[in-house]
Nucleic acid binder design. Sequence first.
DNA 1: TTAAAATCGTTTGCGTACCAATCATCCCAC
DNA 2: GTGGGATGATTGGTACGCAAACGATTTTAA
Lengths: 159, 159
Amino acid sequence: MTKPIPKTQLIEDVMRQLRRMVKALHAYSSEVEARFGLTGPQLWALWTIQQQGPAGLKDLAQAMHLHPSTVVGVVDRLESKRLLLRKPDPTDGRRVRIVLTAAGRRMVAQAPHPAQGQLIHGLQAMRRDEVAQLHETLSRLVAVMEADGLEARFFFSDE
Amino acid sequence: MTKPIPKTQLIEDVMRQLRRMVKALHAYSSEVEARFGLTGPQLWALWTIQQQGPAGLKDLAQAMHLHPSTVVGVVDRLESKRLLLRKPDPTDGRRVRIVLTAAGRRMVAQAPHPAQGQLIHGLQAMRRDEVAQLHETLSRLVAVMEADGLEARFFFSDE
DNA sequence: TTAAAATCGTTTGCGTACCAATCATCCCAC
DNA sequence: GTGGGATGATTGGTACGCAAACGATTTTAA
């Protein structure tokens, strides 16, 4: 290797790629919205409900790794689009059973893979060893990020 | 390799790690907010202004890869915190010159690396070849994601 | 020179996303 | 059984983030 790329530049590039990844995800979401009138999270919620069957709002929030109060809004909008219903739970007055309507099921059937579907597709298009490699390096990265507290980061406050 | 992990599971894991990464970033942002009263985007904006010197709102938005209308709000909040000022541009009545106040400069000096700082720190903690690997696999992934249009994705709507 | 086009910042409207607080209901210990 | 804590859904408040529309200003073109 005659001229190794400096690590700094590699880091810059990785950052740039992550940004591009997020951007590609958003672009995908916009396309879905234009075509089906559903935002990414909405389609994602619909899809999750279909996968898991009728469930409470909290279950849905947990499955989507979102805060319940966030999901309330998403479910509201889906309900006003007549794609799902809130039914009272007969056995527990606090709970709500969220069920798809026929239109909701139809939508899930014809819409593309939800949310990170594009990302999954991208991963599927890669060779197995590439995915394994990504898995390994990401594990390391996440481990480091989760490990250290804020204190450790005060020593590199400038570029 | 006697029992290879199925590719499907690797993909699941990668997705999970990306989610964890986003979560770790958010946790970092919360810590910064608790300590300095600045959200991630606010600190990021402040930092960008310091790096680039006084600039128009559009320049700032471009540097941050954000929509101008988004940046207006961020700048509003920073201005109400007396960390920056909007000054009219003497040569062009449409433009605004965004400049840091003394308090703003002080804040940038003492606050930790903005925004994706934690991510960068995580990358710095990794070996060079690991970063290179991540760079390579991410390149592939982003390329695939950007390459195909929506049409190509209608054929795997279930799973 | 003056009318048309482009640019800049802002406002408005929508949709996430979080937290804290609230309200109803359930459940458990007593 | 009943009172008190736990739990589930919602509301209200704040902050992003985008697109579209709007005024003020500048630049370009006729």
